[in-house]
Design a binder for these strands. Structure first.
Length: 577
RNA sequence: CGGGGUGUGGCGCAGUCUGGUAGCGCAUCGGCUUUGGGUGCCGAGGGCCGGAGGUUCGAAUCCUCUCGCCCCGACCA
């Protein structure tokens, strides 16, 4: 591509509303332009990157035996009513009416459509297992779109849906997808991690997320420093710490102490001169239409997903501050505790080991100290309710410790079970001629999000640093002096030579100063930069520079093509290891 | 949806408090200059100041309504 005639509208400054690195760089490098909240046009260079990701995904899905289809973006409401999601899905579902006033939605996902296809076309166990996928535009009417492409409303997604005869079959398919995803992100040259995930509202028995590691990631993932245990924070658990870690081992009798105005754990801890780990905090939550008291160690943090799962009463909600007083009979926030409360109690399992602790006294401005289970209050039910913390012991191996990293979720695989197949009455005949409901799995990759995530992970102050596998062009040739015939000839020869070798190149042939071209080249971030012309050419050489870093090198013009090919190959190999 | 902010040439902003008919930098176009890190100079084009209504002799500026966008929160593969 020739820069001079291409639409590559680079910007010195990004619009103020763009804060995220990838959002700013995508705008500045001229990859995308906004059209509305959470919707973007992909410009020529940006589209090339998107297509690179698509191609890798497509190749690996095909190689894993999945079949590509393309389903409608617009789906009849009837189908969604059949699965029960028309009412359940909420406002995120963009609903539309046609001229006959019939209801439709713009698909945020395609379980219904694929399941409808399956019930029409799949009749026999001989047709299974099958796995269908598509790469398609989705629309989810997010409450608050943000971070540019990262969390847009319209986005490009690869979604796949598998049908197996039984759980064993699904297990095989699921593993194949796990392996395919691993190959995909590896080939993209990204640093990533598959983690165990909570199955959440979609249900199903098993789930893994694939996260691109980036300090700006929205999600927190825990992983073991010794073994391969990794899970997202919602799901991650730890081995029980040994009792001596936190237990004060105090047998003094329980005392009521005055703690005027001391509401937070920090305040109470400082006031009573006790470590936060010797305090028990009470959190009033609502679930299943009534209030519950959750107990956590003072230095621990509530995990809402775990609490929801443990209570088993539907979503656990944290009430508004005013509402808490209502639920506790007018008690100010900060003094709720387990001693003498009328609320049902669920305690984090870490508390079981505490032989004595301080806690709110259920009266304003007072706490108890040296409270002990069974002596001062009955032992409540215990469950894992907290977020793991760095250095917690690994739940899987004996020796490892957990570390926490930030990640961007780019892929998610699910064992769906028979939820949709049952709702839409899919059945196939088994070898005995009996009707059976197939077991489904679903597998998503946020294709457009991968582009943004790659930038979040690979950039510096000057711009994007593309992995070779995703780069819009593998090489950018800077024509140093457009008015010098020898420079022009060198650049053109290189450009033609690279093209003939199947190496994609961007030729910056604009009538501009070299400095301008350097800036744009850094911004756009092609893996290898070649300067044709200028001082190197005086000695019959061109200058090569790897965008990721290192010293520029000068090579004779005659050797340039071969050297470029070698460097790119070596670089790509390094990125995918 | 709750709270906060913001809308002025393509982008970044000033002007709004204290009404007098719109300005700066970048970008764009023309010319000269420069030519290895967003060169310097001269000149030009481009804005019904988000929209509607109101107050006023006069509104970017004051009032009312409305729309878009951004941030925080809750929510979310």
């Amino acid at each position: 591509m020739r820069f001079s005639i291409a639409l590559i509208p680079t910007l010195k400054e990004a619009p103020v509303e763009a804060h995220t690195v990838s959002h700013r760089l995508m705008l500045r490098a001229g990859l995308i332009r906004p059209l509305g909240s959470g919707i973007y046009t992909w410009l020529p260079v940006g589209l090339k990157i998107l297509r690179k990701v698509e191609a890798i995904v497509r190749q690996e899905m095909d190689a894993a035996g999945a079949q590509e289809v393309l389903m409608p973006a617009v789906q009849p409401a009837e189908l969604w009513r059949e699965s029960g999601r028309w009412d359940f899905y909420g406002k995120e579902l963009l609903r539309i009416r046609d001229r006959h006033d019939r209801e439709f939605c713009f698909g945020p996902t395609h379980e219904e459509v694929i399941t409808d296809l399956a019930r029409r076309e799949l009749k026999s166990y001989r047709q299974l297992p099958v796995n269908f996928y598509q790469i398609q535009t989705k629309f989810r009417d997010e409450i608050r779109p943000r971070f540019g492409i990262m969390r847009g409303r319209e986005f490009l997604m690869k979604d796949a849906y598998s049908f197996d005869m039984d759980a064993e079959g699904l297990e095989v398919t699921y593993r194949a997808m796990h392996a395919a995803y691993t190959r995909i992100f590896k080939r993209c040259g990204l640093s990533f991690r598959p983690v165990e995930a909570d199955t959440g509202s979609i249900g199903g028995s098993s789930s893994h997320e694939f996260h691109v590691l980036a300090s700006s990631g929205e999600d927190v993932i825990a992983s073991c420093t010794q073994c391969d245990y990794a899970a997202n924070l919602e799901k991650a658990t730890s081995a029980m710490p040994t009792a001596s870690d936190s237990d004060p081992g105090n047998s003094a009798t329980m005392r009521l102490v005055s703690t005027p105005g001391k509401k937070s754990i920090e305040e109470v801890s400082a006031f009573l001169n006790l470590p936060q780990s010797h305090l028990v905090k009470g959190l009033v939550v609502e679930a299943g239409g009534r209030a519950h008291l959750l107990l956590l160690r003072g230095d621990h943090e509530l995990n809402l997903v775990k609490a929801t799962n443990a209570l088993g009463l539907g979503t656990v909600q944290i009430p508004e501050p005013g509402r808490i007083a209502e639920l506790t009979g007018g008690l100010p926030v900060g003094y709720v505790g387990p001693v003498g409360t009328s609320l049902p109690i669920l305690a984090d399992r870490a508390l079981e080991q505490l032989t004595s602790f301080a806690c709110g006294a259920n009266q304003p401005d007072h706490h108890f100290t040296d409270a002990a289970w069974e002596r001062d209050l009955p032992k409540p039910a215990f469950a894992d309710l907290r977020n793991v913390q760095p250095d917690d012991p690994c739940p899987r191996c004996a020796t490892g410790r957990l570390r926490l990293d930030r990640g961007i979720e780019v892929g998610h695989i699910f064992k769906l079970g028979d939820k949709y197949a049952k709702a839409l009455a899919v059945s196939v005949l088994d070898p005995d001629g009996q009707e059976r409901t197939p077991i489904m799995g679903c597998y998503g990759i946020g294709v457009s999000r991968v582009v943004a995530a790659a930038i979040e992970q690979n950039h510096d102050d000057n711009g994007i640093i593309w992995p070779v596998a995703l780069a819009p062009f593998e090489v950018e040739i800077l024509l140093a002096n457009p008015n010098d015939p020898l420079s022009v000839q060198t650049a053109e020869t290189l450009y033609a030579g690279l093209t003939a070798m199947g190496i994609t190149a961007l030729l910056d042939d604009r009538d501009d100063r070299l400095g301008v071209k350097f800036k744009d080249a850094d911004l756009i971030g092609c893996p290898l930069r070649v300067v044709a012309g200028g001082r190197a050419l005086k000695e019959g050489k061109v200058e090569l520079q790897i965008r990721r870093g290192g010293d520029p090198m000068q090579v004779p013009v005659s050797e340039a093509l071969v050297t470029i090919r070698e460097k790119l190959a070596a670089h790509a190999l390094m990125e995918q290891s």
